[in-house]
């Protein structure tokens, strides 16, 4: 049996109760809402991506379970200062982390996000962990579309 402590690691409980980068941006370059219709969890991600494709600012607001809130909070920490390409790599790495066995190289890249490795043993909670990441994908995809029109 998977220990609950493997799912709710201290870092996760801390971030869920004290989310970092919680708030909104007035003029984001990218924004998306994420919604899990099964449980009603809802988050909004706001990003500011500069001309070099670097995420210079990223915040979120919303409400949901400890896993989804901590995941959003840690996502914002991990992505600040990263390029869009690096963000995409992290998205795929995170997805691998919570659904199957990621390679050692992927795990290394994920750094602090590895605290979510325990989610894999709780299939009903995978969507909670990935909500913020799917929201990020939506925000960045829209941004890409807009970028092509420039």
């Amino acid at each position: 049996m998977m220990d609950l402590g493997e799912l709710y690691k201290e870092v996760i409980v801390d971030h869920s109760q004290h989310p970092r980068n919680f708030g909104r941006l007035e003029k984001p370059t990218h924004k998306a809402e994420g919604f899990n219709p099964i449980c009603g969890d809802k988050i909004t991600l706001y990003l500011h991506v500069d001309d070099n494709d670097v995420i210079s600012e990223i915040v979120f607001e919303g409400r949901g379970c400890a896993i989804s809130m901590a995941s959003a909070s840690l996502l914002t920490e991990a992505l600040k200062g990263k390029t869009i390409e690096e963000a995409n790599t992290l998205f795929h790495g995170f997805h691998a982390l919570v659904t199957n066995a990621p390679t050692q190289a992927t795990q290394n890249k994920l750094e602090k996000l590895r605290v979510f490795a325990g989610v894999k043993a709780f299939p009903s909670r995978v969507k909670c962990a990935t909500l913020a990441w799917h929201t990020l994908q939506t925000a960045l995809t829209r941004g890409d579309q807009r970028a092509t029109t420039e």
Partner: peptide, 14 residues
């Protein structure tokens, strides 16, 4: 207060 129903459900399930 302070615990989302999903988290309660996971703990209860255990």
């Amino acid at each position: 207060r302070g615990i989302h129903p999903h988290d309660i459900s996971t703990v209860l399930d255990h």
